[in-house]
Design a protein around this nucleic acid. Structure first.
Length: 585
RNA sequence: GCGCCCGUAGCUCAGCCGGAUAGAGCAGCGGACUUCUAAUCCGCAGGUCGCAGGUUCGAAUCCUGCCGGGCGCGCCA
């Protein structure tokens, strides 16, 4: 049970009662008012602004309406105390049992506590990573990967049917360059002397030397004496496969696997682009035109050129967009439009893309395109992930591909571990830039949020281990603790932690609705803080330890709270893709 | 020039679709350990929410205009 949602319904009922008693017509219902824990605990346990929001429609002063609703609420058995405060807030205190009973819910549900049907099983496609298959992933890609993956898990927890998708940009000039780079390495492996140095515009990474050897192993000297026309297609395929293997390995190291990989090239050859454009053509959204040069920027190479344009300005874009290059091939935008149309037509009414900050300027045109191609039927959202600034003990890590000092995502994951990387990547909103300090990330102190949260979980496990020693033979399983006498939990700090845990379903839903997985990290930090505070009381006062040797019943009740805290933390870590630890040693 | 993002305590940042006296961590100061791991906790101090208007019962939040910073701006993906 979600206490706040349950109270929302009671407030709705009380509102109707109040209106009827006042001789007013009932006001249309809806979720336009808040039911939430107030920031200041002196304002009660549950607070609502319903009277402020509905006063106008009710034709009453906010405080008058609040008084009436409060009177109706006061009659409810679960409500201990109601007051009207400030401009017309209704503040409630509930019977302790309402809160305590949530411990039973948590112990019964385990880490699936907080699961919600908010999404009503609607299909959502989350496209993330989509790094070009030209080399290993860098740290910036890693952020998009973690944010996308956590968002997908979050939406799944909130009741959406989520598909995790990767768009492989395996078409266009860059994969040809990749193929040439690989071919060059292949030739170098065979005969370094005659092949010569790697040209400047080729991909320089060592990983292509390995791929070159692998190509030699597979095909022998077959391509060494042939012309580019001949070797390009097979070598390109080989290169893309090799790079995708590399990327999949990098992702696996982060614990990420996608459900669907979509190929740009397959899309281009399947005629999907022509279909999409013909859709637009039919609706008169394509035309031949000449774009204005961008203002305020001197561009020597600018030449006015008539080209096929998509009327994206009709959907809020700043300028219309080209769909064909001068060599006759499609622009990236054209294939990407076809791709998004394809996703929509595969039955996803909700599309979410996770992109890097360098693609921010691309958002409007894609929104315009999805709008046009779905006839407004698709909800499309883009999460932009800002830069990651890597540092080491406060000093920025300088990276240069040429100097060979480039730090890859894999380097970082191998250094600090996947769980640390994932957690750190979620400690900021995705649009804010993120400082990632390699030294601080593994520091064992409260400066390090992942340590702080993991430590709380470990401590909880420790308390349970201790209980098993103190009370040999006693059953401290989740189901046994679910039967503990919760009414023994009557101290303010205990109740305050219980209320925090009871708010977990609300946190999950709010984070999912806002598509902000980082909120989970913040919520876990809050819960960990409350848990640590509770723990420490036991250091000051023996009677307040979780395990009290001469009072089994009290111990069981407290351990139920301890276990419930661990389960909620584990539930949040699960959304983040982080494994909870049971001890820190 | 245009577009998007950002500007909150000395520092790094939260702030849920407008809500009550703006929060947390770090740094600073003062306390709590013969530990269910003190790897933690408690307290104190610290703010014209960039500036100026507007919208309204109420604005850090929404709107407009400035100031300051970042990113992007026809055929690269």
């Amino acid at each position: 049970m979600n206490v706040f949602e349950a109270m929302r319904e009671r407030i709705e009922d009380s509102l109707s009662v109040a209106m009827r008693d006042a001789g007013r017509a009932s006001v249309a219902d809806g979720a336009d008012f808040s039911v939430e824990p107030p920031r200041d605990p002196r304002h009660g346990e549950v607070s609502s602004n319903v009277a402020l929001v509905r006063a106008k429609a009710a034709g009453m002063k906010p405080r008058d309406l609040a008084e009436r609703v409060a009177d109706a609420l006061a009659a409810h058995e679960d409500v201990l105390d109601v007051s009207v405060a400030g401009p017309g807030f209704i503040n409630l205190r509930l019977r302790g049992e309402i809160w305590r009973a949530r411990l039973g819910d948590i112990l019964a549900a385990g880490t699936s506590y907080g699961d919600s049907d908010l999404g009503e099983g609607k299909k959502v496609n989350v496209e993330y990573v989509s790094a070009n298959p030209t080399g290993p992933m860098h740290v910036g890609h890693g952020r998009g990967a973690v944010v996308g993956d956590a968002l997908a898990s979050l939406l799944a927890k909130a009741g959406y049917a989520v598909t995790r998708e990767y768009y492989v940009n395996d078409a266009g000039a860059q994969v040809d360059v990749l193929a040439r780079s690989l071919y060059h390495r292949y030739c170098q492996v065979i005969d370094k002397e005659t092949t010569g140095e790697l040209p400047d515009d080729y991909y320089p990474g060592e990983y292509l030397v390995e791929a070159g050897r692998a190509l030699l192993d597979r095909d022998g000297l077959k391509w060494f004496f042939s012309g580019e026309d001949e070797w390009m297609p097979p070598v390109r395929d080989f290169a893309i496969d090799a790079m995708m293997d590399l990327i999949r390995d990098d992702l696996a190291a982060l614990g990420i696997s996608h459900d669907v990989f979509s190929s740009e090239r397959e899309l281009a050859v399947s005629g999907a682009v022509e279909e999409a454009l013909s859709d637009l053509q039919d609706r008169n959204l394509l035309y031949e035109g000449v774009l204005e040069p961008p203002k305020g920027r001197a561009d020597e190479d600018w030449e006015p050129r008539p080209q096929t344009l998509f009327r994206s300005t009709a959907f809020g874009d700043d300028t219309d967009r080209a769909i064909r290059k001068s060599d006759g091939s499609w622009t990236y935008f054209a294939t990407d439009m076809a791709y998004h149309r394809d996703k929509f037509r595969r039955g996803f009414p909700i599309l979410i893309d996770v992109w890097g900050a360098d693609h921010k300027g691309y958002v409007k045109r894609m929104q315009a395109a999805v709008d046009a191609l779905s006839g407004g039927g698709a909800a499309f959202d883009v999460l932009i992930c800002n830069l990651v600034n890597l540092s080491e003990a406060g000093r920025p890590v300088k990276m240069s591909k040429r100097a060979g000092t480039f730090v890859t995502l894999r380097d970082v994951v191998d250094r600090v571990g996947k769980d640390v990387v994932r957690f750190i990547m979620l400690t900021r909103g995705n649009e804010a830039s993120l400082d990632f300090d390699l030294a601080q990330a593994v520091e064992q102190s409260k400066d390090n949020p992942i340590f702080y949260v993991q430590y709380a979980h470990a401590r909880a496990c420790s308390a349970l281990r201790n209980a098993a020693e103190t009370f040999p033979g006693e059953d401290f399983s989740d189901s046994a603790l679910g039967e503990a006498p919760f009414d023994r939990l009557d101290e303010d700090e205990e109740l305050s932690l219980i209320r925090m845990l009871a708010g977990w379903p609300r946190t999950v839903e709010a984070a999912a609705e806002a598509a902000e997985p980082h909120r989970i990290a913040y919520a876990l930090s809050d819960i960990a803080a409350a848990f640590h505070a509770l723990w420490n009381r036991g250091n000051v006062d023996d009677d307040r330890r979780f395990v009290v040797a001469d009072d089994l019943a009290l111990s069981r009740a407290r351990l139920a709270l301890v276990r419930a805290s661990a389960l909620v933390i584990a539930s949040g870590l699960d959304v983040m893709g982080v494994a909870p630890v049971e001890e820190m040693r």
